[in-house]
Design a protein around this nucleic acid. Sequence first.
DNA 1: TCAATAGTGTCTATAAGACAGTATAGG
DNA 2: CCTATACTGTCTTATAGACACTATTGA
Lengths: 240, 240
Amino acid sequence: MATFKKTNDGYVSAHQPVIYTTDAVVFSISPSAGLSFLAYERTDANEPFFGRLALPGGMIHTDSDANDKAACERVLKSKLGFKPTYLEQLKTFSGAARDPRGWSATVAYLSLVPWEEIEAFLKTSKDATLIPVSDLTAGVVSLAFDHEIIVKAAVDRVQAKARYSSMPCLLLPEKFTILQLLGVYEAIRNEKIDMASFRRKLSKLEFVEAIDNEFQRGVQRPAQLYRMKGGEPILFDSGL
Amino acid sequence: MATFKKTNDGYVSAHQPVIYTTDAVVFSISPSAGLSFLAYERTDANEPFFGRLALPGGMIHTDSDANDKAACERVLKSKLGFKPTYLEQLKTFSGAARDPRGWSATVAYLSLVPWEEIEAFLKTSKDATLIPVSDLTAGVVSLAFDHEIIVKAAVDRVQAKARYSSMPCLLLPEKFTILQLLGVYEAIRNEKIDMASFRRKLSKLEFVEAIDNEFQRGVQRPAQLYRMKGGEPILFDSGL
DNA sequence: TCAATAGTGTCTATAAGACAGTATAGG
DNA sequence: CCTATACTGTCTTATAGACACTATTGA
């Protein structure tokens, strides 16, 4: 087991310090390309994978970040300009091989952002790109570090949660129609869902509520607007 | 963002190095107390929480461990004398507050060990204890660091997986009867399960197979012995 | 033949999927 | 009144839970 030695500024491990970072898979549903995530071109020529696409991420500051989640929030705030409402820890990826600078560990997070916000953000940013998940699975794009593995894990998680959780709601703005919600579940799961069964389950699970006298109007019968009930997403016993 | 400086032995972060550890929640089903996990009394008077109960864990060795999972396997091998067959990453817990020595992070793992092996191990070890999960929820025992939070997360995970995964199989020896398997699911989920429905689902999901001409005999009709099909546990679409 | 546990059949209630039908706006 | 989309009713089939029933061994 590693021993600790006392230094003038505290205890440190006798081992080579770990490069400790956090990365986030920020998902959104693009109307044209479906489930997609944010990536950045790496612009610092002194850092590894220069010019390649990578997930938004950065060092964890042990002198100022309260914990890994706070670090991820800080990083995303600085890269996106806003703090995503939903941020869930995905998994930690570590080892000697994943970063040429040395033994590294990253705490990967998963975030969901409504399309409207991502769209607005992309207009203001020059080095951010939105990558459709289908491009990654098709092998059209490749990512720096082990970030493809991280994204695949994130996609698996979000697809699983689109079966037994209300989490996908958070990809929509505050007010939405049932058809929009259905579309989000379909986009994530990559399959058609029957509207009648979907409504049946929604009314049983009660995680959305109709907003009185608010409708989305178009060239058709107005669609009732709904909002999510309670701030936090819920898990279901049975599938949706 | 943190800057890196070049030193004579590589790049290190400008920040205070993180205390990087791994801990494991090693579950087993005790015939008398149900779902339980391993804990150790902390014996080094120079280390924090001396004398308190804690999860088996230790430092991650960045100079020799390939990654966090390998580190956890090494730690468990040295503490248990054998390498558990099932080890799944649970979550990372980090921050300035959880360890008095400084900003720390632990990659928590979840492991399942058949009762026979745990029973044999407990006879050989003097400082290891098996704590029933019910004792923890009842507040009868308390653990060092944030280990109670870690165990609660592990219990949630294993209970969720006892609804849609064959993972609980790994708490049994290689050969087992359907009644034993049912007992494991009941112990984890803390509820009765109907034998007929259970068998129906088993025969549909096909993750166990009968062993030809092998039975467990007693003062009754012999019970067919089964084994798990394929080394890895599977996930189900519908609940079990 | 009896005790004890292994394993099955069957009834009922609920839920899922398919799909057709009705409702209500704008044009 | 027509079109387009919102929303609902209903039929069929699959599944879950309850519980009684049959099966097979050792003593």
